[in-house]
């Protein structure tokens, strides 16, 4: 497949992104109590969704790597983890922008917030583990760590939720009911972001492939 400006996926993506922004800005109604700030929500939720989707892919690819030991599954896990980090960062950055005007604080220890932050740390640790020289042992160990992380995520979520439900709840995190038009905008955003994930995954996989080709050629030449 072509990449860059020649790829059809790139142009389709650009087009539906513009449509998406239009839908969010003009089609979806302004929320009554929160006002226009609520519109951050569409990107916020969509990037959080991609962050979780990427985690599932990391898990599946890690299991597959331990089983099949092909370079491609490791590439898939690494690329997915990188993109997951990008989108979780977006979630963490856009969240406070909404929370500050609405909850009057940049951060609370809501289970979702805490889990997202821990998820971000795990992604970063995973990438740090993969970083450096791409030896066979690094890939194998990273796959093991990826599996440990995914096992840990539900533990983090349920323990933080349990903690918060025992304590008095200061703010309910999602007191928003969506109107049908808002739902359209949200599902469109989720769809667009998933597509963006696929696109980024694709180009990252290609660049990883290229990296390995260069490495092999070098080894051949200077052996």
């Amino acid at each position: 497949m072509k990449h860059g400006l020649k790829s059809p996926l790139f142009w389709i993506l650009t087009l539906i992104m513009l449509v998406n922004i239009y839908v969010i800005a003009f089609y979806a109604p302004v929320e009554k109590t929160m006002g226009i700030v609520q519109k951050v929500f569409y990107f916020h939720v969509a990037s959080a969704w991609v962050g979780l989707l990427a985690l599932c892919v990391v898990f599946a690819a890690s299991v597959l790597y331990l089983w099949k030991r092909s370079e491609r599954t490791n590439n898939l896990a690494l690329a997915s983890a990188e993109i997951g980090t990008v989108f979780i960062s977006c979630t963490l950055l856009t969240g406070p922008l909404w929370a500050y005007p609405i909850w009057n604080t940049w951060w609370t220890w809501d289970p979702r917030l805490t889990t997202t932050l821990v998820l971000w740390f795990m992604y970063v640790a995973y990438i740090a583990l993969q970083g450096g020289s791409a030896t066979e042992s690094r890939k194998r160990l990273a796959a093991v760590y990826g599996i440990i992380c995914v096992v840990n995520v539900p533990l983090v979520f349920f323990s933080t939720r349990w903690w918060r439900s025992i304590h008095p709840v200061v703010v309910t995190s999602e007191g928003m009911a969506l109107t049908p038009k808002m739902k359209v905008a949200m599902f469109l955003s989720v769809g667009v972001f998933s597509l963006l994930y696929v696109y980024l995954l694709n180009i990252r996989l290609k660049s990883l492939d290229l990296e390995q080709r260069v490495k092999r050629l070098k080894a051949e030449l200077f052996a």
């Binding site: 860059g4 922004i21 226009i36 700030v37 519109k39 951050v40 990107f43 916020h44 990037s47 990188e82 993109i83 990008v86 989108f87 960062s89 977006c90 950055l93 856009t94 922008l97 909404w98 500050y100 005007p101 963006l196 980024l200 180009i203 990252r204 290609k206 660049s207 290229l210 990296e211």
Partner: peptide, 24 residues
Amino acid sequence: FFVAGYIIVWAVVFLYAAGIQRRQ
């Protein structure tokens, strides 16, 4: 806040894509 949110998301995604492009 709304505008800042959108700019942040685009900036982060764009920087990542640009990083890949440069490496490529």
